[in-house]
Design a protein around this nucleic acid. Structure first.
Lengths: 129, 129
DNA sequence: CGGAATCCCCCGCGATACTG
DNA sequence: CAGTATCGCGGGGGATTCCG
């Protein structure tokens, strides 16, 4: 609720703007995938790279940096040869993971339905009569 | 939990790929905002356009078409002058809205923390000594 | 092994103008 | 009012190369 106003037309949906912010944080192509792949424990760079299908090393680096900057994961370097860097969710990162769980379950539950809806939509305007 | 597997290392994260799919559906810049603004009932095109700050008519149209195609909302045209088109969440659309609620609450709850984390991260590598 | 730097392309998206 | 059509750019992100 926060400071909800009841006057529609001017200052409403202040909390709707939060949707914008959460998307700015994890709405990119890879962040949620990285978070998800860290949910079971620390992972090394190359492990993540192999686990997340299609990600480039550049985007993995960029994504990890962003999540580290946001305090969602930690980066731990062991100064040995060869280098050993591991990434791990912070407590806040784990709460993020939990917050995304419903959305994930939703997609699992409704994906078939969506495919069907798409097919029927495409058929609809392709065969006018 | 759903169909959780307990064998880490090989066949895991099959469901992690769903993260990809849900992002393909609502991970774009505007979809979740539209869904959120429809959560309180049907809205007309211009209502949405004014309510969603910064959206162009083009992107509103594109986003609405996509969500309609996915079966997340319905488009109802009343053939009058001037035209009257209203959009409304389907039952599935409402479940989507509910599934995103935790993520929204998460952002509200942690946004300040994230800003702080960013500030400290930026200060960290900007002032090496 | 885990990056950083560079190049470059694609397309998401905004701006503008025109229609029924 | 509720769109469609067209143009143009900015930047997200892939491919490649080099480094400690």
């Amino acid at each position: 609720m926060s400071a909800a106003d009841s006057t529609p037309g001017s200052g409403e949906q202040q909390d709707g703007c939060r949707t914008r912010e959460v998307l700015d944080i994890v709405g990119d192509k890879w962040s949620l995938l990285v978070v998800r792949h860290l949910s079971q424990g620390p992972r090394r760079f190359t492990e993540l790279k192999r686990a997340i299908d299609g990600i480039s090393q550049r985007m993995l680096t960029v994504t990890l940096r962003g999540l580290e900057r946001d305090g969602i994961l930690t980066r731990t370097v062991r100064n040995v040869m060869p280098p050993h860097v591991s990434y791990e969710l912070t407590p806040m990162g784990r709460t993020l993971r939990e917050a995304t769980a419903p959305l994930l379950e939703w997609s699992i539950e409704h994906l078939a339905h969506i495919d069907a809806a798409r097919a029927s939509y495409d058929a609809r305007d392709r065969a006018p009569h």
